[in-house]
C-alpha cells in the first residue's frame, strides 16, 4: 500500500503553515501531525491530499500548562505524554483515556489535536473533550478563535476547522473541588477503536449530590455528542450505584446509533447504557475522593477497567 504522490512542506512557523494552506486549492492540503490516522487513510487512498503540511516540529504546540482557570494542552501533545504527565495528576481521565488509545507505538506518535481534528466517529478523545467541556483554539488567516467542544464536530471526519485554520491548543476549565471524571469504553479488539465510549464528569454539592454532570459519547452516532437529557436527570441525585444504573437504563434519547458489521444499533444502545453507568460510577468515586493536591492515576486496561494485580 503506497499513498498517492503528494507535495511535502515543513513550514517553520504557524503563520507560514497557514500561508501554505491558503496558497493551495481549498481542500487539497492536509495538516500532518503524528500521521497515525492520516497516513493509513492515504495508503488506502481514502484520503488523497495533494499537499501535506507537516507541523509536528513547530515550537510551542506541544505541552501542558496549568493555570488557575484553565488546563491548556498543546495540539501536538502525544497520547503517551498525556498518559504520564505529572501536570495531569488531578485529571486521571487523561491517563485513563491515553492508556486505551490504540497501542503503545501509536501513542508515541499520535497527538491529541490530530485525533480531534481527524474526527473519526469512534475516536476516544472526542468523548473526553465533550465531557470536560473543552474548547478548541484555532489559528487562521483571521487570527485566533475558540470553539466549544459541542460546536467542534460537524460530521464524520468533519469539524468546524475552516480553510487555512490550524488547531493549536485544547483548553479545559480547571478541575474544581468535589469533581471527578472518567472514561469507559468497549473496545474493538482488532482495531483498538471504541465500539462505544463514554466520558463523564461529575461535580458534587456539599451534601454529595450531583450538582452538575456532563457526558460525552463517541462511537455511537455519526458525530460524538453530549448526553444532555441524562445530564439533566442526574442533577440533584445522590449517586449511589443503583441510582446511576436506573437512570442510565431510562435511556439516552440523543443516541442515534450506527449499525455496522461490528455491532447492530440496539447492541450499541445496550453497551452505551452500561458504559455510561461505569463512567459515571468511576467519576463519582473520584469526585468523592478528590482532595486538592491528591492525585489518582491507577493503571487501567485497554477497556478502561482498573488493573487488578494478584
Amino acid at each position: 500500500m503506497i499513498p498517492a504522490a503528494f507535495e511535502y512542506l515543513r513550514p517553520r512557523s504557524l503563520e507560514e503553515a497557514v500561508a501554505c494552506l491558503l496558497q493551495r486549492e481549498p481542500g487539497t492540503a492536509a495538516i500532518l501531525a503524528g500521521g497515525m490516522s492520516l497516513i493509513p487513510a492515504m495508503k488506502l487512498r481514502l484520503a488523497r491530499p495533494a499537499t501535506l503540511v507537516d507541523i509536528v516540529r513547530l515550537r510551542g504546540l506541544a505541552g501542558i500548562v496549568r493555570s488557575a482557570e484553565h488546563l491548556r494542552i498543546g495540539a501536538l501533545t502525544t497520547h503517551a505524554a498525556l498518559g504520564g504527565a505529572p501536570e495531569l495528576a488531578r485529571y486521571p481521565v487523561f491517563a485513563e483515556t491515553a492508556g486505551v488509545v490504540a497501542d503503545p507505538q501509536i501513542r508515541h506518535r499520535g497527538t491529541l489535536g490530530g485525533s480531534l481534528a481527524y474526527a473519526h466517529p469512534a475516536a476516544d478523545w472526542p468523548a473526553v473533550f465533550l465531557a470536560l467541556q473543552g474548547e478548541a483554539q484555532l489559528f487562521g488567516p483571521q487570527g485566533r478563535r475558540s470553539v466549544p467542544a459541542e460546536d467542534f464536530f460537524t460530521g464524520i471526519f468533519e469539524t468546524t476547522i475552516g480553510a487555512g485554520e490550524i488547531l493549536t491548543e485544547i483548553r479545559f476549565p480547571s478541575v474544581r473541588e468535589r469533581s471527578g471524571a472518567a472514561y469507559s469504553r468497549m473496545c474493538l479488539q482488532a482495531s483498538g477503536m471504541a465500539l462505544v465510549g463514554v466520558a463523564a464528569q461529575i461535580m458534587l454539592d456539599a451534601e454529595g449530590r450531583i450538582d452538575h454532570a456532563s457526558i460525552g459519547v463517541t462511537g455511537v452516532n455519526a458525530v460524538p455528542f453530549r448526553a444532555r437529557s441524562l445530564e439533566m436527570r442526574l442533577r440533584g441525585v445522590l449517586p449511589a450505584a443503583a441510582a446511576l444504573r436506573d437512570l442510565c437504563a431510562t435511556g439516552i434519547p440523543e443516541a442515534e446509533p450506527l449499525s455496522d458489521p461490528h455491532a447492530a444499533a440496539d447492541y450499541r444502545l445496550q453497551m452505551l447504557r452500561i458504559h455510561a453507568e461505569r463512567a459515571l460510577g468511576r467519576a463519582f468515586e473520584r469526585a468523592r475522593a478528590a482532595v486538592p493536591g491528591l492525585g489518582y492515576s491507577a493503571p487501567v486496561t485497554r477497556d478502561g477497567e482498573p488493573v487488578v494485580r494478584p
Binding site: 500521521g35 497516513i39 493509513p40 497501542d103 507505538q105 501509536i106 506518535r109
Partner: peptide
C-alpha cells in the same frame, strides 16, 4: 496499516510504526 507491529523500530528511542511514518 498500523495494526500488527511487525515494523516496530525505535525513533529517537521510542517504539514507533515505521509503516505509518514517512521517511521525511
Amino acid at each position: 496499516h498500523g495494526i500488527c507491529g511487525l515494523c516496530t523500530v525505535l525513533i529517537d528511542g521510542r517504539s514507533g510504526r515505521s509503516c505509518l511514518t514517512l521517511a521525511v
